[in-house]
Design a protein around this nucleic acid. Structure first.
Length: 561
DNA sequence: CACATTGGCGCC
DNA sequence: AGGGCGCCAATGTG
């Protein structure tokens, strides 16, 4: 495969430099193109050679290409790959890992958001940041390729870097295409739950009424229910003895006033987080365009910035409506994390339980636990590090049934407690605990340390152990999801009518598809899940089951799962 | 005044 | 219970 490097010429700002290179990054030829002809030049090269584009930052380069109608097939995102390689235990001895922090460790370039100026391929002389260090694209690529080649697991790292980079392409493409969103449907849902929105602005009728009723019932008509401190005092003055205003505590307490207050909180949350203001800010032209941040979470999961795309509440998912004649194909990887754990640990008994479309039911059928609910709570406890309650009590049974899987998460927890790094299946390593953590732990072992120090250190160790325990599973699941999505993207290109990805949520994908090929898109989702499992784990016995549904809205699909 | 933190809660 | 996030309003701080 050929490489094409795309970057600014630092000496002549505003000019695009395209450079062909071999697979080891050695330069072959170089051409400069005026920035305004960048998209055209990229398109020509994409058509002629279908190269793997190497550039500093997909979030910086790709949106403008998409806006110009240009899509690229493959890329290598130097910024994202740098972050992975710098931290990875698989290439800890590389020159890249040893280098001091530099421009490649900087956060991604600022992204366009609603109201912000439209992205350009290269920032104009005046518009961009005042000073920008020139980036050595060729040099960085060499360092990265060397780090991979000399690593303990080049094949895995190559897959991880390709998946991460493809994820960045997909993120930009999904923002460009947008999730179909009906303002009318959203408004209808809000009105149904919250009541009519007053014409002159202000809070809807049902919310206001609830607020009044709660305050009157408490005998404090001016109480601000939105201030947790005020509310806590107000509740206690009215004889409701709670230690916080958290919903679960209120629910445990019970009582008619509490019921109403909980309803108020539910409605208030919907109104403030995903009400009309959200709709006006984040939806335009019938599309919601989340700003995804690939690799935004240390575990490799994506984050989003603005609009809360990863927290769209179930209540408003009915507003994600396919265009006329189109469908939304919604796929959800069933119990992804335990399946990933079964595959990465090579636990055959757990893999067998996972032959069942419902893995938790598989646990029940294998006689490990009494019911599905127990299976779920036990497994979550194993992956999150439960120390008390039902979940912790079930651990010995899980350990007996699935010794290798449990040993793997336990080992990750112990490593974290010692302050060591843990690594996902493909090679993303956890960060080291903070300096504060290390000081706390060190303080407990010096001469004259008291029981207070020991307790604080023990608690800090356990906290970090829970983090590393979860990291290997959450991180590997994120890798599976990236591979799933990348495989799907390629498969969708072979289906006529341009079905395309419109939403990604950790273990869930939405495809917007012409109605006539929606079944093909659904099959592509299933085939891609199988492919992802093979890519990561080879011939594993673990099945990665999906639930797939074709419907008009996001909510329809979820209802049938 | 702007910015950072906290409590709470939505999602996986 | 237990891991990971982002966003809101209220509140605290410079």
């Amino acid at each position: 495969m050929s490489l094409a490097l795309l970057y600014d010429d630092a000496a002549r700002r505003g000019w695009l430099v395209l450079q062909d290179a071999t697979d080891d990054g050695a330069p072959l030829a170089r051409e400069s193109v005026p920035a305004e002809r960048a998209a055209e030049a990229v398109l020509a090269k994409e058509r002629a050679a279908r190269p793997r584009w190497v550039w500093d930052d997909t979030a910086r380069r790709y949106p403008a290409l998409l806006a110009a109608g240009v899509r690229v097939e493959r890329a290598h995102d130097l910024r994202l790959c740098h972050a992975i390689l710098r931290g990875s235990a698989f290439c800890a001895g590389s020159a890249l890992a040893a280098a001091p922090r530099g421009p490649w460790d900087a956060p991604r370039a600022a992204e366009a958001s609603p109201g912000a100026r439209t992205a350009t391929l290269f920032d104009d002389e005046d518009a961009g940041p005042a000073v920008e260090e020139p980036l050595d694209v060729v040099g960085e690529l060499r360092l990265q390729l060397d780090a991979v080649a000399g690593s303990q697991a080049p094949r895995r790292l190559r897959l991880l870097l390709a998946a991460e980079s493809t994820g960045a392409l997909i993120a930009a493409e999904m923002t460009h295409d947008g999730l179909p969103w009906s303002a009318e449907a959203h408004d209808r849902i809000l009105t149904e739950i919250l009541g009519e929105r007053p014409a002159g602005g202000g809070r809807p009728e049902r919310l206001e009424r609830l607020s009044r009723e709660v305050r009157e019932a408490l005998g404090q008509p001016t109480l601000n229910l939105d201030s947790s401190a005020e509310l806590l005092n107000g509740l206690r003055r009215a004889g409701i003895e709670v230690s916080s205003t958290r919903s679960w505590e209120l629910r445990d307490h019970g009582g008619p006033i509490v019921e109403q207050l909980l309803e108020y909180k539910r409605l208030s949350r919907l109104y403030t987080a995903n009400g009309w203001a959200w709709l006006e800010t984040w939806v335009s032209g019938g599309r919601f365009r989340p700003d995804y941040v690939p690799g935004g979470v240390v575990s490799g999961r994506w984050a989003t910035s603005g609009g809360g795309a990863l927290q769209i509440p179930a209540a408003v998912r009915g507003a994600a409506v396919a265009d006329p004649g189109w469908k939304l194909v919604v796929a959800d990887a069933a119990q992804l994390e335990p399946r990933v754990l079964a595959a990465m640990s090579g636990d055959q008994a757990m893999a067998r339980a996972g032959r069942h479309a419902d893995l938790y039911q598989g646990f029940v059928d294998a006689g490990v636990v009494a019911d599905r609910k127990q299976a779920k709570v036990a497994m979550l406890g194993a992956m999150y590090g439960a120390t008390t309650g039902d979940s912790a009590a079930l651990m010995p049974r899980l350990e007996r049934a699935f010794p290798r899987a449990i040993a793997m998460v336990e080992a990750a927890a112990r490593a974290g407690e010692r302050g060591e790094v843990v690594t996902t299946w493909l090679g993303r390593s956890s960060p080291l605990p903070s300096q504060r953590w290390q000081d706390l732990v060190a303080a407990a072992s010096v001469e004259g340390a008291g029981p207070e120090d020991a307790r604080a250190a023990r608690s800090a160790r356990r906290d970090w152990g829970r983090f590393t325990r979860n990291f290997i599973v959450q991180g590997t699941a994120a890798e599976w999801a990236l591979c799933w999505m990348a495989a799907l993207r390629r498969r969708l290109l072979t289906i006529p009518g341009r079905p395309h990805l419109v939403f990604f949520l950790h273990d869930e994908l939405l495809v917007h598809s012409p109605g006539g090929v929606a079944e093909d898109a659904a099959q592509a989702l299933r085939d891609s899940a199988v492919e992802a499992g093979r890519l990561l784990f080879g011939p594993t016995r673990v099945e990665f089951a999906l639930s797939v549904h074709i419907g008009e809205t996001y909510a329809d699909a979820k209802r049938h799962m």
